[in-house]
């Protein structure tokens, strides 16, 4: 799977309330409507700068805080293709895969705002087309690759009716 877009930079410890403030859930249940307020607490103009396919690029502990799956869902619905970070909070990481949003653990240190990036999930590479550099991606566990290739956990269950994860059944 190859993804292409430009980088939007964020710092360390971007939490789930930064990604989508919980106050919006009292006024709407429409995720697409909620996605207009992505990063609203920390960067109110962010949504207007996104082109389809772009990336969020962050530091460590991205997505810390709440277990609300709203966070990866609104990132995906806002048109972003993946989140690249030095590290992720574990619930967010699982939730992202479950909703079919690629999360890429890699060294994001050299990436600057606006850099054009290409992410090759199969080869496990991030290419910075602007800077002409290339970096490796921490590989996803086989179970997550299976879920991601089905399009997330909901799609996996629609297809199989229950868990059908070969990587676990084979005891890999």
């Amino acid at each position: 799977m190859q993804l292409k877009g430009k980088a939007h930079l964020f710092g360390n410890d971007v939490n789930t309330d930064d990604i989508i403030a919980s106050k919006y859930k009292s006024s709407t249940t429409d995720m697409l409507e909620m996605s207009k307020y992505l990063m609203g607490n920390i960067d109110p103009d962010f949504v207007r700068r996104i082109a389809p396919g772009d990336f969020i690029v962050a530091g460590s502990n991205f997505g810390c805080g709440s277990s609300r799956e709203t966070a990866p869902r609104v990132i995906k619905l806002a048109g972003l293709s993946a989140v690249l970070a030095k590290g992720f909070a574990r619930i967010f990481f699982r939730n992202a895969i479950n909703v079919g949003l690629p999360v890429v653990e890699c060294d994001t240190g050299g990436i600057e705002a606006g850099d054009r990036l290409e992410v090759d999930l199969t080869a496990g590479l991030v290419r910075n087309l602007t800077k002409g550099t290339e970096g490796k991606v921490a590989p996803l566990p086989a179970v997550m690759l299976e879920l991601l290739s089905d399009g997330g956990l909901s799609e996996h269950f629609k297809k199989h009716g229950t868990f059908h994860l070969q990587s676990i059944e084979k005891g890999k």
Partner: peptide, 14 residues
Amino acid sequence: TGVGVSDAAAAMIS
């Protein structure tokens, strides 16, 4: 441990 709604729903079924 805390999980998202997709993980919870999968466990509610299975």
